[in-house]
Nucleic acid binder design. Structure first.
Length: 620
DNA sequence: ATAGGGTTAG
């Protein structure tokens, strides 16, 4: 195994941990031999005979169905089309070596070494132990959970090219990915393909993912259509589907839509909706229509003594939110109290992180910020712990209400609680410090953000530099420009802003220094407009010609570098050629040509490997 | 031993 396809391995990495694991896998010697030149011509011939025999025992689909009488149209396979999508493997394929592989990859995922898990999966495609679609799905899912979208799509492309047939779970993961990336149209194109081409049906989860994703991407109309479509296909939309759509209606201020959906759900369920998740949205619908009495009656029916409605923490939270946001804070407090009393983990979970977030907001709406902090700190008593978002939420409230000191104190406790501040946290504190006339602390928060490996967006950077320049701190602004110019995609206006500041403080040489950086930046074009601006600034000191000089010089340096590069490439080619010719004798470490040769041999003796060569070359 | 169950803050 370790010796197979060495040229491919060099594309990857040198020995990795998974390869090490691979060595422990019992590998039948025959398969190992397949990838090597055979020890003797006899052995090679024997292997060819074995393959032919296998083909005879398991004739390809086309010949077997052609031999069968035509009176069996019930067979859904369409062997006449070689491009017809393959059926995914059955779960029974997950056995023996392939199950071992599966478990090893699951272990890597559990250890959170996703890079290794993905690499191992790709790697195995070329081994004697192909990963099953179940293993691939596990890796795709792990990548999705960590928002590693490009890695996910790249692995998916890879297994598709390698001919690993996807199953419905694979498709669902891809839908989820595109929807999470705010690409609902791409997701829907994939859905269309699934409906048209796949040899299996969507699952109820397919519709949950698509409808939720469409709603979250502001495509409520399309989501509604999909609900109808799933009904036509015989799927039963459940409370979850209706919840997603009702939330969508609330967001787009469509109370009538909420009512209509609720009635429809009620009818489908025979008159009562026992699942509590939908009631918060229903109440919000009433509040939106100024039907306060109706809203509160609904509230009573949901949580009153005679209620048959089952409330989870999340269902409660949505009701709690409806109360807080609509002037019913007293009721909210009572409900929250009841929730905490009902809470007895692990048996009954009536509050969670979200309950506290909602209450924090509720107190803040009432202007009771100290109480907001207090309830936030109570979380621990109920085995809940705040995350970055809930910290940010409270920090934002405090910052916006003149309580910067409390916000900073709260920020200070994040570390102890093992919660990491993110870009939003630092941006908030930076802005608030500027507002409080503490520019140095503001700049300090920005710097801290960059130092902790976070990537501020250009807007935060612009606010920082803007404030610093306003305060006459041009040099500091320039220092941040230098710090960020390589890390951010600076746009023309950000360049122009710092140039203008430098020029206006009489630092034309520093300005030209920025122009120099701009000329090296491939991400931006030095537009005619921008050039005219620079010339204008230079003209103030009769240095208009300096720009031309700088640009000419740049051209010259670039041309020189290009020539050098070409020379280096030529030299590398020569040395590569030399290396290749010295290796040609050894088939073991064949060059590209060598690899192609052996791949061609393989394809002549068996069909199952087709597509491999293309893959090996087109992948990193 | 493959997805998936919901709410609320940017």
């Amino acid at each position: 195994m370790a010796l197979s396809k060495p040229t491919f391995f060099t594309h990857l990495r040198t020995l990795t941990r998974s390869q090490h694991l691979l060595h422990q896998a019992p590998a039948p010697p025959i398969v190992t031999l397949r990838f090597l030149s055979f020890a003797s011509p006899e052995e090679a011939a024997a292997e060819r005979r074995r393959r032919k025999r296998r083909l005879r025992i398991e004739p390809p689909l086309s010949s077997s169905s052609a031999a069968r009488p035509q009176s069996q149209p019930s067979k859904p396979q369409s062997p006449q089309n070689p491009n017809a999508p393959k059926l995914p493997e059955h779960i029974s394929a997950l056995s023996g070596n392939r199950l071992n592989l599966h478990n090893r990859i699951l272990t890597l995922i559990r250890e959170n070494d996703l890079e290794e898990a993905a690499l191992f999966t790709r790697h195995s495609i070329y081994s004697n132990c192909r990963p099953t679609i179940f293993t691939v799905n596990a890796v795709l899912n792990a990548l999705l959970r960590q928002s590693k979208y490009s890695d996910l799509l790249s692995l998916h492309r890879f297994i598709t090219q390698a001919g690993v047939a996807p199953n419905i779970i694979t498709h669902n993961l891809i839908f989820q990915t595109y929807l999470d990336c705010r690409k609902p149209d791409t997701a829907m194109e994939h859905y269309k393909q699934l409906i048209n081409d796949a040899p299996f049906n969507p699952s109820p989860t397919t519709y949950r993912i698509l409808i939720k994703g469409l709603v979250d991407n502001n495509k409520l109309e399309r989501a509604m259509e999909l609900k109808e479509e799933m009904t036509m296909k015989g799927f039963v939309p459940d409370p979850l589907i209706y919840l997603y759509l009702m939330v969508g209606c609330v967001r787009s201020s469509d109370p009538d839509g909420v009512f209509k959906l609720f009635e429809e759900l009620k009818e489908k369920l025979g008159g009562t909706v026992e699942d509590g998740v939908v009631y918060g949205s229903l109440m919000k619908g009433y509040f939106m229509k100024e039907m306060e009495e109706e809203a509160m009656r609904c509230y009573e029916e949901t949580v009153g003594v005679n209620s048959v409605v089952k409330m989870s923490a999340i269902a409660y939270n949505s009701v709690l939110d409806a109360l807080c946001k609509n002037g019913k804070f007293g009721e909210a407090l009572m409900l929250f109290d009841r929730m905490t009393k009902e809470h007895s983990p692990p048996r009954r979970l009536a509050v969670d992180l979200g309950s506290f977030n909602v209450m924090v907001d509720g107190y803040c709406i009432e202007g009771r910020f100290k109480d907001a902090i207090e309830v936030f700190e109570k979380m621990g008593d109920y085995r809940c712990s705040p995350d970055t978002l809930s910290f940010n939420n409270l920090i934002e409230q405090l910052c916006n209400n003149g309580m910067l000191a409390d916000a900073e104190e709260l920020y200070g406790t994040m570390g102890d609680k093992g919660v990491n501040p993110d870009e939003f946290t630092y941006g908030l504190l930076m802005d608030s410090c500027f507002k409080a006339n503490r520019p140095d602390d503001a700049a300090g928060y920005f710097r801290k953000m960059v130092e902790s490996g976070l990537r501020p967006n250009i807007a935060v950077y612009n606010r920082l530099v803007d404030e610093l320049v306003k305060l006459g701190k041009i040099n500091e602004a320039k220092a941040f420009f230098d710090l960020m110019v390589k890390k951010l995609k600076m746009d023309a206006s950000s360049y122009q802003f710092i140039m203008k500041a430098l020029s206006e403080s009489g630092q034309l040489d520093e300005m030209l220094n920025v122009v120099d950086t701009l000329l090296d930046d491939d991400g931006i074009e030095f537009s005619e407009e921008l050039q005219e601006f620079v010339r204008g600034e230079l003209r103030k000191e009769d240095r208009e010609g300096d720009l031309g000089k700088l640009m000419e010089e740049k051209e010259r340096v670039k041309a020189e570098a290009k020539a050098k590069e070409a020379e280096a490439a030529e030299a590398q080619k020569r040395s590569a050629k030399a290396a290749v010719s010295s290796l040609l004798s050894s088939k073991l470490f064949g060059n590209k040509e060598g690899e192609k040769e052996s791949a061609v041999n393989e394809m002549q003796s068996g069909q199952e490997d087709s597509g491999k060569t293309e893959l090996a070359e087109s992948n990193p």
